[in-house]
């Protein structure tokens, strides 16, 4: 247990995203748009042993997430939990949930889809499977999963 303390250093204010599938931590950051100089301290723990095998953990100081951002995480880390920390204490714990309708978060990978034109609409998908995650474009019907979703996050 001593080992765990070392890896998972406490933060004062911010969020801790736990139970990210192993190797997906950097993609979670990409989805959240956290790249380069973000002005806050980031801690990433990769390949951490947990009760259910290996996982990644991301800690971001002085930053909070709205529901839309949390929905985005669910697309690549469906079992993640988001802990909101204030003054070293977890004050709230969210379990991310894959939304039934994924709107304005992912763009369609089909280049011939009308949503990839200059039209006044947001791309919209219906979630047709959660594990593994598969979403289907409301307009062209193209199904997307895994890496395709990650690459097309808006």
């Amino acid at each position: 247990m001593e080992e765990k303390v070392l890896k998972v250093q406490k933060i004062k204010n911010g969020i801790v995203i736990d139970h990210i599938p192993c190797g997906m931590a950097l993609k979670v950051l990409k989805i959240l748009g956290i790249e380069g100089d973000v002005g806050s301290t980031l801690t990433i723990a990769m390949h951490v042993k947990s009760k259910h095998g290996w996982k990644d953990i991301v800690k971001i100081e002085d930053r909070y997430l709205d529901d839309r951002e949390i929905d985005k995480i669910a697309l690549i880390a469906p079992n993640a939990t988001v802990n909101v920390v204030e003054d070293y204490k977890v004050i709230r714990k969210h379990r991310v949930k894959v939304p039934e309708i994924v709107k304005g978060i992912v763009k369609c990978m089909n280049p011939r889809c009308i949503t990839n034109q200059r039209e006044p609409i947001e791309p919209e998908f219906k979630t047709i499977s959660i594990e593994p995650i598969v979403i289907k474009c409301k307009y062209c019907g193209r199904e997307m999963s895994g890496e395709d979703i990650v690459e097309n996050i808006i």
């Binding site: 011939r112 889809c113 009308i114 949503t115 034109q117 039209e119 409301k138 062209c140 019907g141 193209r142």
Partner: peptide, 26 residues
């Protein structure tokens, strides 16, 4: 229309009924 999903978009913007006569490979 040559693009997929065009008829669905048209249906969203039209008040009158829209009938798809073929959109792309869709």
């Amino acid at each position: 229309h040559p693009l997929e999903g065009a008829a669905r978009l048209a249906a969203e913007f039209a008040e009158v009924p829209v009938i798809n006569a073929g959109d792309g490979a869709g």
